[in-house]
Design a protein around this nucleic acid. Sequence first.
DNA 1: GACAAACCGGAGACTGTCTCCGTATCGTCG
DNA 2: CGACGATACGGAGACAGTCTCCGGTTTGTC
Lengths: 197, 197
Amino acid sequence: MSVEAVAPTRPMRADARRNYEAIVRVAIEAFAEHGTNTSLDDIANRAGVGPGTLYRHFPNRDCLLEAALVDSRYELLALAERLLHADDADAALDEWMFALARHAGAWDGLADSIAQSLNREKSPLGASCGEVITATQKLLERASTLGTVTADATARELFIMAGSLAWAADRAARGNGRGSADDELPRLLSLLMRGLR
Amino acid sequence: MSVEAVAPTRPMRADARRNYEAIVRVAIEAFAEHGTNTSLDDIANRAGVGPGTLYRHFPNRDCLLEAALVDSRYELLALAERLLHADDADAALDEWMFALARHAGAWDGLADSIAQSLNREKSPLGASCGEVITATQKLLERASTLGTVTADATARELFIMAGSLAWAADRAARGNGRGSADDELPRLLSLLMRGLR
DNA sequence: GACAAACCGGAGACTGTCTCCGTATCGTCG
DNA sequence: CGACGATACGGAGACAGTCTCCGGTTTGTC
């Protein structure tokens, strides 16, 4: 519908691309290590660039987060494609929710960052959640018609519930002695999924 | 077991008590208005004291949060007491979880603050969650023996799930058009509670 | 009314965010 | 190849929030 007004976007200059990639590479490490609230100036340092360079490429934390999640989301959407052709539509939805929760729980604070960006206009992170929610929608509809799901939850609610599960699993795991979030997640997820029937 | 080594704790000086109470009063307002991450120096200002005074009474944010939640938690525990004698143990647990989620969702960021403090030793906020979790335990046991609850969730998990629901309801409500968190919460809660059966 | 203990409050060190602009680098064209 | 314009760099620094230290003030008591 909209005229393809994509600017010619001449390719980045070599040094710019080099820095861009270095920043994203370091950001992935830093987010994994210290959560999504780690210092951006620190990331700039570790990437060998000044803070000005980082903020030119990524005007805010969401932009950097989005860039750091591109690969992970690509894999997620590939999984959705496969699950859409699975035999068991119920099991497919289960697996999808699990994958979603693991995605959102990969870094400390990520679920929160995603959920907040979801409600903010113009957040690149929130925008790119659109396709993931669409995928959720398709899998949910399939589990409703071919499977046994009856609850009237929206895809958006399921998406957020997945984030909320990641949040809960992380909090429940820390300090319960031995368990990790990977142990908690299936337990909590099964509680939720039984509620859909 | 431990010797009651409680110091005589002579009563606070009049000006100290006055400041303490002013700070807590302002803090409740500020947390409600701007979430649990609002500026503490700002609270000190609005309470008419210097930052030093605030930090002497409340060495960190958790301590202030704890003081600001005393009344609310008191009401919560009174509700638990009542629910322990309710006829329908299942409905009692439902109502308790709802109250718990509303408590944790009262201020933006509160669920997160509580969950984090829960895993940190020496946090007064986390410590005071103990009685609430104990209350949850009793209601859960009662719903297991007298009611129909069969899932093997721990009280601690339920407590965290309540926080996670508050988190999810808040995120789902913002930006879905018209709804408020109060509309979302029952929907999400019912999904969870059906999963316990 | 005077003294010691308790308490106040603001200056400021420190950390993290984000911007501005003089300088350096890149790609291209003569 | 050399030079020019566009593009990009990076660090100094403004700003905001956290938290501490200590000289000065207030309170309760004898």
